[in-house]
Simulated scan of single mutants.
Amino acid sequence: MDIVDDGLRVLFCGINPGLMSAWTGYHFARPGNRFWPALHASGFTPRRFAPAEQQGMLALGLGITNVAPRATARADELTADELTAGGKRLTAKVEARRPQWLAVLGVTAYRVAFDDRAAKVGPQERTIGHTRIWVLPSPSGLNAHWSPAALAAEFGRLRTAAEAPPTR
């Protein structure tokens, strides 16, 4: 289900597939999920993609993966062990694929997966090799304290950073 390639500009990483995503085979497939609208509103895509168009992300230098592979109705159904193991798998994937940025969608999951209890939304000090890390709010409709406009603005901050020349 990964949408990945070598040297992407940004590899977006969801927490895990929701039940609708597992059923359809498309990332962020639930109609109330705000990933695709935020991606477009922030300027990452020229138009709003439908989940079934996710392969088109690669042509834009963007990819999608997940921390944990197990589908659940809610991300909080995952165990800490699943998230920690997912952080290790994700680190190996990033080391192999070397995207410019890894964008983890969900600060709570990031804190557990990478054992960083103090992490906040935004760019992180930690890197994986030369890959910078940005934690984005979860686009789940359950994360209601991030409005669609605020979510798009945070995605936009990442887009601006990702368009800057690499500092390698």
Results as ranks from 00 to 15, higher is better:
Gly86Arg: 04
Ala68Val: 13
Leu158Val: 02
Pro137Ala: 09
Ala113His: 03
Arg168Phe: 15
Pro139Asp: 10
His145Asp: 13
Ser140Val: 07
Ala92Glu: 14
Thr84Tyr: 09
Ala41Val: 08
Ala59Gly: 14
Gly87Glu: 10
Thr24Ala: 02
Ala164Ile: 13
Ile128Ser: 11
Leu60Pro: 09
Glu163Pro: 03
Ala150Phe: 05
Gly25Tyr: 00
Pro165Ser: 12
Glu163Asn: 09
Leu105Ile: 04
Phe35Thr: 05
Leu158Arg: 08
Gly129His: 13
Pro37Glu: 05
Ala29Ile: 04
Glu125Gln: 14
Val4Met: 14
Ala153Cys: 11
Ala113Val: 00
Ser138Gln: 09
Val10Phe: 04
Ala149Ile: 07
Leu62Ala: 08
Ala50Val: 03
Arg30Ala: 11
Gly156Tyr: 03
Leu83Thr: 01
Thr91Asn: 06
Leu142Arg: 10
Glu82Phe: 07
Pro31Lys: 01
Asn33Asp: 15
Leu39Phe: 04
Val135Met: 13
Leu158His: 04
Arg117Phe: 09
Asp5Tyr: 08
Ala73Trp: 10
Ala162Trp: 01
Thr72Tyr: 10
Thr131Met: 05
Phe155Asp: 05
Arg70Ser: 12
Cys13Val: 14
Pro37Ile: 05
Pro148Tyr: 14
Ala153Ile: 06
Ser147Arg: 03
Pro31Trp: 03
Gly63Ser: 07
Met1Trp: 09
Gly56Thr: 07
Asp81Asn: 11
Ala68Ile: 07
Met20Tyr: 06
His130Ser: 15
Arg48Tyr: 02
Arg34Gln: 03
Thr160Leu: 13
Pro51Ile: 05
His40Tyr: 11
Val107Pro: 05
Ala118Asp: 15
Cys13Asp: 01
Ala152Trp: 06
Arg70Gly: 12
Val4Ile: 15
Trp146Val: 12
Gln124Asn: 08
Leu58Asn: 10
Gly61Thr: 12
Glu154Lys: 06
Ala103Glu: 07
Asp5Asn: 15
Thr127Gln: 15
His40Ile: 09
Leu78Tyr: 04
Asn16Cys: 12
Leu19Cys: 15
Ala109Met: 04
Arg117Asn: 06
Asp81His: 06
Val112Met: 00
Pro139Trp: 10
His40Thr: 03
Ile64Phe: 14
Gly86Asn: 06
Asp6Lys: 15
Phe114Ile: 06
Leu90Gln: 05
Arg48Cys: 12
Pro46Gln: 12
Leu105Trp: 00
Gly87Lys: 00
Pro123Phe: 06
Pro31Met: 01
Asn33Cys: 06
Arg9Asp: 12
Met1Thr: 12
Thr91His: 07
Arg98Glu: 14
Glu163Met: 10
Gly32Gln: 12
Met20Gly: 04
Ala52Phe: 09
Trp36His: 04
His145Met: 08
Gln54Pro: 07
Trp36Asn: 03
Trp146Ser: 05
Leu62Cys: 01
Phe114Glu: 01
Ala109Arg: 05
Trp36Leu: 02
Pro137Cys: 00
Gln124Thr: 02
Gly18Val: 01
Tyr26Trp: 15
Asp116Ile: 02
Ile133Asn: 04
Arg9Gln: 14
Arg70Gln: 14
Ala52Tyr: 14
Leu83Asp: 07
Val107Tyr: 03
Gly32Tyr: 01
Leu62Phe: 05
